[in-house]
Design a protein around this nucleic acid. Sequence first.
DNA 1: AGTTGCACCTGGCTGC
DNA 2: TGCAGCCAGGTGCAAC
Length: 289
Amino acid sequence: MPELPEVETVRRGLEPAMAGARLTAIDQRRPGLRFPFPERFAERLIGRRIEGLRRRAKYLIADLDGPELLVMHLGMSGSFRIERAKGPDVPALGAKPKNPSHDHVVLELSSGARVIYNDPRRFGFMQLIPRNGFSAHPLFKNIGIEPLCEAFDGAALARLFAGRMAPLKPVLLDQSLIAGLGNIYVCEALHRAGLSPRRPAASLVCKNGRPGERATSLARAIREVLEEAVAAGGSSLRDHRQADGALGYFQHCFRVYGRENEFCMRCGGKVRRITQSGRATFYCGGCQR
DNA sequence: AGTTGCACCTGGCTGC
DNA sequence: TGCAGCCAGGTGCAAC
């Protein structure tokens, strides 16, 4: 489900309830999700103050006042909602889950909020990792550049693409190169840049190693589509919602994703659906070269 | 080393 | 109405 814009939207929704609050109780309702929960998970969390909530790639990271960080990943179908347990200082509302039996973890906070993690497919997970040197941790050591950071531009793309003959689509999905892109936003960014998902990544690099116009255009398209999606509160496919229950609306802005056989709004060509690395790719055969 | 394909799960939709 | 089959936003690992 969630790509960078959805995770960032969740982060912003959770921050008011979580940042600065202390964990007062944990209800862990099953032994694990994609991976088993850490040993003594609740015990290691209770009493800790959450100093801040960050995002890296598609991970949410709660900075705790102890020696550990709480790392959360939403997988394909994970979502958080906030129910007010008590007290006047928690603004967020809650969206009723379709199936409360998929509420797997409940975090009670000193802010008065109750933060509930729901995940039907259980591809998400939660881990506790040492705060010191967390970027060397296996979860993070191979994560690529953040596409919304300043250093992300055509030159950065050219460095990543050099020598890679694989098609653009799977290369852009590779989290060890660029962090946070998923199937939707890769399709959308390639359409905006007018580039075929089948084009070899290295073809965007000039002989002298310079980025070239296509790489610059693609970097701009990636940044643009992600920024617009974050501003729209992400995309709401199936049951994905923001932490306060509101629906993101970027899905109404898709130009190719999920639009097989519809007309391209730029050139009038037909949107095609192909499979690359086992995943659906949507693109316009008319204007994506 | 770089890639591909599959496995992990449940639920929603389509077509018979 | 029921049911089989296919599809889904992600990622890690085995196999080529």
